[in-house]
Computed example of a mutant assay.
Amino acid sequence: MSRSVAGPEIERLIQLMARLPGLGPRSARRAALHLIKKRETLLGPLSDAMRVAAERVVVCRSCGNVDTSDPCTICTDAKRDPSLIVVVEDVSDLWALERSGAVPGRYHVLGGVLSPLDGVRPEHLNIEGLVSRASEPGVGEIILALNATVDGQTTAHYVTERLSHLPLKITRLAHGVPVGGELDYLDEGTLSAAIRSRTAF
């Protein structure tokens, strides 16, 4: 069993940082040490930014995006096409598509994908909210911008079935999105091409 080489406050910081995606215990130790060394220029401002985020950031009840207002700035943007809803797995996918500048409409965050192995069933996702939004007057197209994984495709099929009773055009991302690829790791040009080249599902 390894011994602690730092005080309990630093150990707590390391343990919390190790919970972040992409950071293991070693990376968390290095990051924590860097923050402590840069206490005035990095640790203090980061602490303030995290406190403000914890106080002000909310989840949009309409689309599932995170913002400081509810409904979020995307949902209230009058320049966006209200007839188009882009369905994504997570907020990180929404952000990736926004960086591409290729989406003229609004979004809907499912909050994950169906995964029998992980116990994720339809009631665990925001599918009912999507059906409700898709039923609103003026909505004409749903773009399924889900990751090209087995679970992503299973979710796309399920969502298509749930929306089949509505007079909607249902499309999915096409060229440029590799099988097994995740939206958050693709460049803006690839995402733009995928949106422009969407096909019927």
Results as ranks from 00 to 15, higher is better:
V88M: 04
T68P: 01
E161S: 10
V179F: 10
T160H: 12
P178F: 11
L94F: 06
G24M: 02
I127V: 13
A18Q: 01
R121A: 05
T160G: 13
L168A: 15
L114F: 10
H157I: 14
K38H: 15
H124I: 08
A28D: 12
A28W: 08
S135L: 06
K79C: 12
I195K: 01
P122G: 06
V57K: 10
S27T: 06
S92I: 11
V58F: 03
G181H: 00
E98K: 02
L46F: 07
P71K: 04
G101P: 11
P45N: 09
L43N: 05
L125G: 00
L163C: 06
A194T: 04
Q15G: 13
H34D: 09
H108N: 03
I74G: 04
S69N: 04
S4V: 09
T149W: 00
S115H: 04
H124R: 07
L35F: 00
V91E: 01
D90L: 11
D118T: 13
S83W: 01
L130G: 07
G181Y: 04
T199S: 04
S2D: 03
G140Y: 05
V150I: 15
V159E: 04
R39S: 06
R26S: 02
R133I: 06
A78F: 08
V139L: 03
L183Y: 03
V109I: 14
R133W: 01
I143Y: 03
V57S: 14
P21L: 12
I127C: 07
T149F: 02
E136K: 09
I143G: 06
G119K: 04
A156Y: 05
L35K: 05
T199G: 01
P116G: 06
R99G: 00
R29Y: 07
L46W: 02
G7V: 08
K79E: 14
M1G: 07
G112P: 13
P21V: 08
A156S: 09
A193W: 11
I143T: 12
D48T: 15
R172D: 12
T171G: 01
V109A: 12
I36E: 06
R3H: 09
N147Y: 08
S135A: 13
G189T: 14
S100R: 09
G176I: 07
S2I: 02
R26V: 03
M17S: 09
R133E: 09
L84C: 10
A134G: 11
E9W: 06
R121W: 00
S62P: 01
G44I: 06
V87D: 03
R99S: 05
N65T: 15
L33E: 08
P25M: 04
R61P: 14
G111W: 15
E98P: 01
A49E: 07
C75G: 05
A49S: 11
G22F: 14
K37W: 12
